[in-house]
Amino acid sequence: MPFLEFIAGSISGAVGLAVGHPLDTVKVRLQAQSVYKGIFHCMAKTYSNEGVFITAPVDLVKVRLQGQTTADRYRGPIHCVAVILKKEGPRGLFRGGLALALRDIPCYGLYFLPYEVTRKALTESGKEPGTLAILMAGGVAGVVTWAFATPMDVVKARLQMSGAGGREYRGVLHCMRASFREEGVRVFFKGLLLNSLRAFPVNAVTFLSYESLMRIFCPPMR
């Protein structure tokens, strides 16, 4: 049973990432850089300069690759890792790790609460949740979670980009103070709209894929 849950979770997670990756790239660029006027300007500039979006397996490498506007610095994930190790050492690969933990630990705790509440609210008593209930519950869970995660997500993106030509920060608190001083409280909600637009379909598909796979792997006893 745990192994089947692992397989179902892995597949559904991959499906969700595939759905959300293009908007994730735009979100990173809006948070880490100030050269874009808004969502559509960022999307237009990215597509006109680079075509279809890139992908990377590690969060730091993903952010570095998403954040660059040309291929002059990094030619791909492996080259990105090599450059980071050469210029920053092994510690460079963990840049922004504390901010990532501060973002993810409380948000993963929150993640399943709105899902369960919404799913139960949309399901008749004694019946299995339908496709619409799962999709809506997954979407709501994603939006609620990212609403709480966005401020620290901004800090994480800025710390991760600070070793790649971006503004240098000494740590999480310095990044928060400097960002607030220079841009005001609004800076911590950069990318919130994109996070929400991305989170709803990504998590709706993720939960639907997981629930569907578990029903296939473990059909209910009749």
Rank of each mutant, 00 (worst) to 15 (best):
G165Q: 04
G166M: 05
G166K: 00
G166D: 06
G166W: 02
R167W: 03
R167M: 07
R167P: 12
E168C: 07
E168L: 13
E168R: 15
Y169A: 03
R170F: 00
R170K: 15
R170Y: 00
R170E: 01
G171A: 13
G171T: 09
G171P: 00
V172M: 05
V172D: 03
V172C: 09
V172Y: 01
V172E: 04
L173E: 09
L173I: 15
L173V: 15
H174T: 07
H174A: 11
C175E: 12
M176L: 12
M176F: 11
M176I: 15
M176G: 02
R177M: 08
A178I: 01
A178F: 01
A178W: 01
S179E: 13
F180P: 00
F180Q: 13
F180I: 00
R181S: 13
E182K: 09
E182H: 04
G184N: 03
V185F: 09
R186I: 00
R186P: 02
R186E: 06
R186C: 02
V187G: 05
V187D: 02
F188T: 10
F188H: 13
F188D: 12
F189N: 11
F189V: 14
K190W: 02
K190A: 07
K190I: 08
K190F: 03
K190V: 11
G191T: 09
G191W: 08
G191R: 03
G191Q: 03
G191M: 02
L192F: 12
L193T: 14
L193R: 03
L193C: 07
L194S: 00
N195E: 05
S196V: 10
S196G: 14
S196E: 04
S196C: 15
S196Q: 05
L197F: 11
L197R: 02
L197G: 02
R198T: 13
R198Y: 08
R198F: 09
R198H: 12
R198M: 15
F200C: 10
F200K: 06
F200V: 11
P201E: 04
P201N: 07
P201I: 04
V202A: 12
V202D: 09
N203D: 07
N203M: 10
A204K: 03
A204I: 04
A204D: 07
V205Q: 04
V205G: 01
V205C: 14
V205D: 02
T206S: 10
T206V: 05
T206I: 00
T206A: 11
T206Y: 06
T206F: 08
T206R: 12
F207W: 14
L208P: 00
L208K: 06
L208A: 14
L208Q: 08
S209N: 01
Y210Q: 05
E211S: 08
E211M: 13
E211Y: 13
E211I: 11
S212E: 03
S212G: 07
L213F: 07
L213I: 09
L213R: 01
M214G: 08
R215G: 09
R215W: 03
I216Y: 14
I216F: 15
I216K: 13
I216L: 15
F217I: 01
F217W: 11
C218K: 10
C218F: 04
C218Q: 12
M221F: 10
M221D: 02
M221R: 08
M221Q: 10
R222P: 13
